[in-house]
């Protein structure tokens, strides 16, 4: 007997091809809704650290597309983990797996409904992992998710992680995006 998950999840893969528009590079890989099917998928696909630069994995609840424009994302934001180049070898895969386990195991107590999904961006200049939540105004939910996530990743107190609204990320580039919350 398989162990059912609370939610059905969809894994997406993005491969950068500059000759195509962003959405054309995004592929739905598969959906799953049991613990066993999650592991069958995870054990079968490439580790994030072995992906080519420019690639992303996204895991979202069924029905939510991994983009700002989706109705369930557009008022939301993300807890962002930025990694140095050195961390790819040591921590990228470990952090991403922990992120996935937080999502499928429903790790955020009363606030799991606020979680939309998670994204990992593999980039030469530095990798990023983020958990996306649905509403930047749900302060209690956002903060609880951020604190729990930081604990689960085993990040020390001195490391501060920030939460950014997608609306700000979409209109400002890189360093201009301000944190709405930090934990």
């Amino acid at each position: 007997m398989k162990h059912p998950l609370q939610n059905r999840w969809t894994l997406w893969f993005y491969k950068n091809d500059k000759t195509k528009p962003w959405q054309a590079n995004l592929r739905l890989v598969t959906k799953f809704d049991t613990v066993e099917d999650f592991w069958a998928l995870y054990n079968h696909i490439q580790l994030a650290s072995r992906l080519m630069s420019g690639c992303d994995y996204s895991l979202f609840k069924d029905g939510i597309e991994p983009m700002w424009e989706d109705n369930r994302n557009k008022c939301g934001g993300r807890w962002l983990i930025t990694l140095s180049k050195q961390q790819r070898m040591l921590e990228l895969d470990q952090f991403w797996l922990e992120t996935l386990l937080c999502l499928i195991g429903e790790a955020f107590d009363d606030y799991n409904n606020d979680v939309c999904g998670a994204v990992i961006n593999v980039r030469a200049k530095g990798d990023k992992i983020a958990i996306w939540t649905r509403d930047t105004e749900n302060q209690k939910a956002v903060l609880h998710i951020g604190k729990t996530y930081k604990e689960r990743l085993g990040l020390p107190m001195r490391i501060v992680i920030g939460y950014q609204a997608h609306a700000d990320t979409a209109t400002k580039s890189g360093f201009g995006v301000k944190n709405k919350f930090v934990v």
């Binding site: 195991g105 429903e106 790790a107 799991n112």
Partner: peptide, 18 residues
């Protein structure tokens, strides 16, 4: 209703079970 919650330990134990 009740939520189906799995902790890290349980999920990891399922990784290699047949």
């Amino acid at each position: 209703g009740t939520r189906i919650i799995y902790d890290r330990k349980f999920l990891m134990e399922c990784r290699n079970s047949p």
